[in-house]
């Protein structure tokens, strides 16, 4: 089990790219922080989520 945006999520073993797609996020509008570090977009496919990870998906909205 790991935490995504404060919620328990059963996604250990999945890549960040597949978790993001399954959760319905639009990849061009997000930034992902994992255990205190930003995961660059180019690394989503090779980043494997692990038990105990703490992930925050920042979903940007328009306006400025």
């Amino acid at each position: 089990m790991l935490k995504v945006n404060g919620q328990d999520v059963d996604a250990a073993g999945k890549t960040l790219a597949s978790y993001i797609a399954e959760a319905g996020y639009n990849q061009v509008r997000i930034a992902v922080e994992r255990n205190g570090e930003i995961v660059p977009k180019s690394k989503y496919g090779e980043t494997v989520l692990a038990d105990g990870d703490c992930v925050e998906v920042v979903n940007f909205v328009g306006g400025g």
């Binding site: 509008r29 660059p40 977009k41 180019s42 940007f60 909205v61 328009g62 400025g64």
Partner: peptide, 15 residues
Amino acid sequence: DKADAKAMLVDTVLE
């Protein structure tokens, strides 16, 4: 103002 531009800058700067 655009969400994708925001995400691009955050990703680029932090990387």
